[in-house]
Simulated assay, not measured.
Amino acid sequence: MKIIITAGGTSEKIDDVRTITNSSTGRLGYAIGRVFAEKYGDEIEKIYYLHGMRAAYVKHPKVYPIMIEGVADLQEQLTKLLTNEKIDVVVHAMAVSDYIINEVTTLDRIRGVENSECKADLSGNKISSDIEDLVIHMKRSPKVISIIKKLSPSTVLVGFKLLSGVSHEELIDVGCRLMDKNDCDFVLANDLREIGRDFHRGYLIHKDRTYDIMENNEQIADMIAVRIMEGR
């Protein structure tokens, strides 16, 4: 059995020293990886652990860590693995950037009032810190989750949906829509209001719209692993 787990967050480069990222710690992905490695290691050949640059990875003989930087990097690594190997399960817990850098410019350039004497230098590997009005233009990133079942239809896919400050009904409804759109087998839906240092309420939605309720990362990780392993 071969599994891919994605964890942590992606980072999009502005220049060689600056990035735009998100606040994902990768703790939930780490908990999921640990459960599969420690409880089901005898049944698993490999766990490919695709993790963000600031996220820790599970150290275990069955775990193969692959560091991910941006969305393009994640898409490339997933495509390579799903194309070249038979992957039984993908647990896509990574917080993927919704937007990527399209262009870096200035307000004066946008307004067309920049004069030649004060022209901002955006060239080179590091944007000058002397620029007063830097503008970062972003565009929507590709939805990486959408390629997984297209590349490997038989792979069991667990998607994740994080919202903030919505009703319970909306949270479950949005999770179900993610499931339908990307042919997920399960979706873990959670609300930022129900996540803290010592608690994390999650709802693992099934194909029939029923769901399991968990109260922390360890319970979530255990439930995901149990549902996947019992369905084999």
Rank of each mutant, 00 (worst) to 15 (best):
C118S: 10
L171A: 00
V226L: 11
M223N: 12
E38D: 14
M94P: 06
I101P: 00
N84Y: 02
D121T: 15
L82M: 06
M67Q: 13
S97M: 06
E69N: 09
L107F: 12
T210E: 07
N115W: 07
I224N: 01
G175R: 05
I213A: 15
T105I: 10
T155H: 08
S23H: 13
V226N: 12
K59Y: 13
I47R: 11
V113W: 02
Y49M: 05
V226T: 12
A225N: 09
K46H: 15
K181W: 10
G29C: 09
D133A: 04
T10Y: 01
G33R: 02
E114R: 06
M214V: 05
R193N: 13
M67G: 11
D108L: 08
K143I: 08
C176E: 09
L163E: 07
I4F: 04
A55E: 03
V35P: 00
C176N: 13
K150P: 00
S24H: 06
H60Q: 05
D16I: 08
I147S: 03
I32L: 04
P153H: 13
G196E: 07
A7I: 06
A31I: 07
H206I: 01
L162Y: 07
R201E: 15
G26W: 03
M138W: 02
K62C: 10
E45M: 08
V71W: 08
V91N: 04
S141R: 05
K46Y: 13
E76G: 14
T19H: 09
T25Q: 10
N22E: 11
D121S: 12
N22G: 11
I136M: 05
E76W: 07
L81R: 05
M94N: 03
S164C: 10
F160Q: 00
I127Y: 03
L151W: 03
I205R: 05
S154D: 08
K59L: 08
L192Y: 05
G159V: 05
S11G: 07
S97W: 01
K207N: 07
I87Y: 00
E85W: 04
K150E: 11
C184R: 03
I68K: 10
D212K: 01
A55N: 04
K86F: 14
V89D: 00
F160V: 01
Y57P: 01
R109F: 02
F160E: 00
I131Q: 00
G159M: 07
Q77D: 11
A31T: 08
D42F: 04
T105Q: 12
I195A: 03
R193K: 14
Y211H: 11
F199Y: 09
Y211N: 04
S141N: 12
G41N: 00
I213H: 12
L28M: 11
I4M: 04
I47N: 13
T19E: 14
I44R: 02
I172M: 13
R18H: 10
V187R: 02
T25F: 06
Q219D: 11
R54N: 15
R18F: 07
Q75M: 15
S23K: 14
C176P: 03
K139L: 07
F36V: 01
